[in-house]
Amino acid sequence: MDRQQPAPRPQPLVRRRFLGLVSAAAGLVAAEPLSRAWARSELTRSGDDPDALPPFERLHLPRLRSPAFTSNGAKVPVVVEMSHPMDPSHYIASISVMNERDPVPLKGVFHFTPLNGQVYLAFQIRMDQGASEISATAECSRHARWQSTRSITIPEGAGGCAGTAPPPGRTGPDEIGPPAIRIPQLIADGRISPDQTIDVQIKIKHPSRTGLVVREGTFVQASDPLYLNRMHVFYRDERISQFTMTSALSDNPLITFRLRAHGEGLLRVVLTNNRGQRFEATHLIHFS
């Protein structure tokens, strides 16, 4: 069963943990910006008009873009973007995307580092039919978690959560192909400049299936899922990002993130799937 549970497993409240929580609470009360951040992190804010937000919130609430209505639940484009600084002392450490009412609620957790330069993430997910509230939660290295939501409706019969994985070794429409790195700025402008923030697109031909089927109106795990579960990004031998994905990813995903080209060197992306297969793509970043 490939249902990712959003709620963390409860931990027993031992004495050390209790004291830690008390200290943390005292610290939060003393530090005004932090307490404000925690208060805000409990709120669910719609990202419809981020420009109307106060500067501090505008900086921390992820801008979540997805269609309000789409007739293809098997491939729903999601974009999360932030203008938050990516300094070593203050940066966005991760973005989580979720839809609570889907059979596979967690769509992915995407870890960033200051070397990314900017938080930008675009990928495609599977969603069930009906009205949903998709959420993006950003974790700031200083100011805790911030969540934006967006409403989306998939018409009846157009849900995309069910799907059977192809057997290993299959060729044809479901065959797996090696990934490739595409840099749109190189195609549009023919060059990359030092310290330019570039888009990095990962293209891969890879099916992503939940293994779920609908029986009597309920999702049932009928077979093993198949999906890309990890993506590690290395730039000049440093790991700059790590993405954890689920079977709620769409077939043949086009995954985009940003990178500050701070020097010439090799960009390397390593993907793995839940069958243990490994795929790699490289692209030499050089300035001209």
Partner: peptide, 11 residues
């Protein structure tokens, strides 16, 4: 919707 041709047809 934000869909692009390459999201179904990589390469």
């Amino acid at each position: 919707t934000g869909m692009a041709c390459a999201m179904c047809h990589p390469f």
